[in-house]
Each structure stands twice: as structure tokens, then as C-alpha cells.
């Protein structure tokens, strides 16, 4: 049997990779994919911890995370579409109206 810690470590690693993706990529769609990656890392952690505690609540939370991820992807991609229509780009650097 694989120790739970290994799963948690894998979750941390995937989360870190997702963070890096959010940070370094300029394509908003890839940024979004990286966010999904981070969500999945957390999902895995939930499942692992739930398994460690012998409780199914972690799975329920993952279930909700999935729903919210779907919602977030739909709305986010809708926004990207609308933004693309205005700027003809999905380069994150081009969207910086919210500044000083």
C-alpha cells in the first residue's frame, strides 16, 4: 500500500506546477487550464485525506469542487470569449485595465 503522504506530496507538486503555469503563461486559456490543474491537485488531496480519515466527506467536497470547476470554466471561458472579441487577443498582458 502506498502511504497517504505520497498522495499528498503528489498533490502539492501538481498544485505547484499549476501555480507556475498560472504565473508564467500569457495565454489566458492555458492559465485557465493551470487553474484546473490546481483544483485537481486539491481534489486529490481531499480524496487522500478522506481516505486517511476513513470518511467520505472528502469525496463529497470533491464532487462540489467539480461542479464549481465546471461553472467556473464556463463563466471564465465566456469572459475570455467576450474579452477576445474586444481585444482580438487572449494575451494576459493585454488585459491590464484594472490598475492604478
Amino acid at each position: 500500500m502506498t502511504p497517504i503522504n505520497y498522495y499528498l506530496g503528489l498533490g502539492a507538486l501538481l498544485f505547484a506546477i499549476g501555480t507556475v503555469g498560472v504565473l508564467i503563461r500569457r495565454n489566458l486559456i492555458v492559465v485557465f487550464m493551470s487553474i484546473e490543474l490546481m483544483l485537481n491537485a486539491v481534489n486529490l488531496t481531499f480524496i487522500a485525506l478522506g481516505r486517511a480519515m476513513g470518511s467520505a466527506d472528502g469525496q463529497v467536497i470533491v464532487f462540489f469542487v467539480m461542479i464549481v470547476a465546471g461553472v467556473e470554466a464556463a463563466v471564465g471561458l465566456g469572459i475570455i470569449l467576450a474579452a477576445f472579441r474586444n481585444r482580438l487577443t487572449v494575451n494576459a498582458d493585454e488585459f491590464n485595465l484594472l490598475r492604478w
Partner: peptide, 9 residues
């Protein structure tokens, strides 16, 4: 506040 999301992240 650069307006760049990635700086915030």
C-alpha cells in the same frame, strides 16, 4: 496594482 493578474498571483 499593475493590472496584470499574474503579478497579483
Amino acid at each position: 496594482e499593475t493590472g496584470n493578474v499574474q503579478h497579483y498571483v
